[in-house]
Design a protein around this nucleic acid. Structure first.
Lengths: 120, 120
DNA sequence: ATATTGATTAGAGTTTACTCTAAGTCAAGT
DNA sequence: ACTTGACTTAGAGTAAACTCTAATCAATAT
């Protein structure tokens, strides 16, 4: 059971952000006797998942939606898959955009290098 | 020579955004006799390039930096390559993140589908 | 005993990248 | 002559996602 500081450390995000995620109902940690937040293994792995979604440009609003489906229980499985499948399509689109840009930069950089090389 | 509206149309961005890019010195269009902005082929292809950088998460500040190097002339070629090469590394990192997330979602969705399938 | 450390809260402030508003000019069409 | 539509400006407003502040409290360290 980790404190907010330890959790922030482990995940590489700030305690501020963790409180913000709680305010947005993305993660609901436990509380200890003193009223301090406590994050267990399930919170940590959930947050790691959230961070993966974030890293792949899922907006907070969509993560909130997914989190609320998870809280609602088993019967939302279908809706969850729909949401994740749609995000997966967005990831595929991003992959294509990035691959195209990578190739474009490859060519552009090669062109510049020829230019620089020939001027020395 | 396109007007701001035509340019916006062609590029799929708003005229507002084009004025914003000008304010930020990312693109400096010509002006016609009436004082209206005019974009020629070189502006259009530059903006297409800028949009590619944007789509791959290059911040406006970095695009500004690159644009200023381009305006400074030939002798900044080395600095430009450095900037582009660094962005290329960022694209590679994004590709890895996205690929990992794609696989993770593939597994997660497969798991959910088994769950839903077995409950019907 | 006091000082530091790390936590708490509500709410304000920041950054990025637009996005829009208001007030106005100008050319073309009816 | 009038309306329409596209353009002009400076500057205000917005949305997303944090990020920080101030005041406070509780447990440890010296």
């Amino acid at each position: 059971m980790l404190t907010i500081g330890e959790t922030a450390e482990v995940l590489g995000i700030s305690a501020h952000t963790l409180r913000y995620y709680e305010k947005e109902r993305i993660v609901l940690p436990l509380r200890d006797a003193g009223g301090d937040r406590r994050y267990d293994e399930s919170h940590i792995s959930w947050l790691k998942f959230v961070i993966k979604l974030k890293e792949t440009q899922m907006p907070i609003a969509a993560i909130q939606k997914y989190a609320s489906l998870v809280r609602e229980g088993e019967h939302t499985a279908e809706a969850r898959v729909k949401l994740l499948a749609e995000h997966k399509r967005s990831i595929r689109a991003q992959l294509e955009t990035l691959t195209a840009a990578d190739e474009m930069l490859e060519r552009k950089i090669a062109g510049y290098r020829t230019l620089i090389g020939s001027s020395r």
